[in-house]
Design a protein around this nucleic acid. Structure first.
Lengths: 340, 340
DNA sequence: CTGTTAGCGCATTCAA
DNA sequence: TTGAATGCGCTAACAG
């Protein structure tokens, strides 16, 4: 039978209320008494029953998610996953608010962060752009004691609590390994398409990609990265132009969004046998992979990211520690053979 | 404020105890009264607070895990993950017993299953061999109302509650896609090495592999599968013999265990530039991938599998439903670039 | 068949 | 600075 607060109280020769004060670090207890309780806790190996505590205190965790709006399919999936988590909120004792901000608008993110009342919230998660205003707004929340998790794209300069996303350098390296091997020694150029180098995830993918391609596949050169702000039309135009002007291109790595544009551009060049790797499984990219238009997709499970963010923020709000292995977001590699 | 049992009692004009009887489907309540309560539940949109219920009834979930012993690194990792989960048992209200049985011994598994007292257990998980005795023993437990989850390798002929593992056909297909593309058109033979075709996971991988290789890479023939009972020595001998006698071999797919033996055999043939794909990240396979001895590894996250099994069995014991997306075990594809 | 009552393990008034 | 008493939402004796 595991010990309860009653056992501690008896063992320490104090009342329930005093035990509770010590356990929760509340003031108004003599040094002497504190250590009496603490040693009783140690002696009996007491661990608090969190569910009972949450019941007694009627705890709910008000959480805010800040995500970019716009046509980006991945972000729409992400938002849907947050909404799904919000549906489960009573069972999980959470209360989730989704705040949509315009895409690629650091000021809007900073403003949304600053509008949050630190006392009314037990955690914040956001898809960040790596800019000074956002970093500062995040650190302000941290200073007010609010746990902040970055989602999908990290904010390395900040003091954010946790990053819920993949290792994007490794993702870029993986893309290079795949393209390099699929090209099987054929020399040429690989076009790299990105959304914005101001996004940490994009910048990291580009650097990981370049590192491996240079080191292991010297026969392949890199063109770009061209920046498209994740706009499908710009992606289409950029790729069409590159394919028209550069006959050396043997592969394309789209490390950002806008796969729709890429697919359109490729539809006119089915004869060129390009090796194409892109990110995120969406309706369009899935079809392209199945059709052999894409050769591989690198994916992050945004459902996992959202669930992880919630677990991390809740745990942090209570000062509990978490299961690291469970929070590691995997770099999913999909060929058409293992598409779920 | 979400409604409680008190609200239901008031709304239905009955006592707390009666509400509880109806909610838990216990007998001894008039038809009339039952429907009064049920309609009150519907009207107020009541959902039970599971944590409070578990507190009141001091619920614990006694779980049994049956796993093969022996030198297989993957199974050792799996056992370690179960042990880690057992450490967390107080917080998760579980009580986990690990039962180790000799590897490749269906009778031992069946015996262990039959030794379980259905009344003393709320769920069972096992790594199954697909044989009649095991299938029947599983179905007997199911008949006694015990939820049973298969772990890693499924038991398709049984009425098991859930399979915690990867889609092994897709895993085999993926291996074929990888080997096929990495061979880049070079004709030859791929040696397939398996543990035992009596294991559903191995059989499924072999069939998925063959299907894709035949359909998409007609220049590649298949030799095998040779069965090794996951014994590293047998793997080494089989591979050495095949490499010595068959100069056509350009690739190897080890869909079972015993990677140590494979690595030893390959160490004498570094000049042959073989494409090698194997399963499961372990100490040895990880090193082989980093060294370029292996070209890719397909992995299943056994920590995830164990956590999933626990969630599934607990949910099933209470008749709750679960988050399917969270329980899908991914086919991890590792190149040396994304090895964690 | 139905209701009363006393907990589960913990937090929190309100007095002392 | 400390303690007694009450309640969180639910279950389970025990009566009636």
């Amino acid at each position: 039978m595991r010990p309860t607060v009653h056992d501690i109280a008896a063992e320490a020769g104090v009342s329930l209320a005093t035990v509770d004060r010590v356990l929760n670090g509340r003031p108004g207890v003599r040094r002497q008494t504190v250590s009496k309780v603490e040693s009783a806790v140690l002696r009996l190996g007491y661990v608090r029953d969190v569910t009972a505590a949450n019941l007694a205190r009627r705890r709910v965790y008000p959480l805010v998610f800040i995500v970019p709006g716009g046509p980006n399919s991945f972000m729409q999936n992400l938002t849907a996953e947050i909404a799904a988590a919000a549906q489960r909120s009573t069972a999980e004792r959470t209360s989730i608010r989704i705040e949509t901000v315009p895409p690629f608008d650091p000021a809007a993110i900073a403003k949304a962060l600053d509008a949050i009342d630190p006392k009314a919230v037990s955690g914040v998660a956001l898809v960040a752009t790596d800019t000074a205003d956002v970093t500062e707004a995040v650190d302000r929340l941290i200073d007010h004691g609010v746990p902040v998790a970055t989602l999908v794209s990290d904010l390395p300069g900040s003091r954010r609590t946790h990053f819920c996303g993949i290792d994007n350098i490794a993702a870029g390296r993986t893309a290079a390994g795949l393209i390099g091997r699929f090209c099987s020694g054929r020399p040429g150029t690989v076009l790299v398409v990105a959304g914005s180098m101001k996004l940490t995830d994009h910048a990291e993918r580009a650097s990981g990609f370049a590192a491996v391609l240079e080191a292991e596949f010297p026969e392949l050169a890199i063109a770009g990265p061209v920046e498209t702000n994740d706009d499908a039309d710009k992606v289409r135009q950029s790729v069409e132009k590159a394919l028209a002007t550069n006959p050396e291109i043997v592969g394309i790595y789209n490390l950002g969004a806008g796969n729709r544009g890429l697919i359109e551009a490729l539809s006119k060049h089915r004869d060129r046998k390009l090796i194409v790797v892109a990110h995120e499984v969406t309706q369009h990219s899935r079809q392209a992979l199945a059709d052999g238009v894409f050769d591989a997709l690198i994916n992050q499970d945004c459902g996992h990211e959202v669930r992880s963010a919630i677990r991390v923020l809740k745990a942090r709000a209570d000062g509990l520690d978490l299961l690291n292995a469970q929070e590691r977001i995997r770099i999913d590699v999909f060929l058409k053979d293992n598409l779920p």
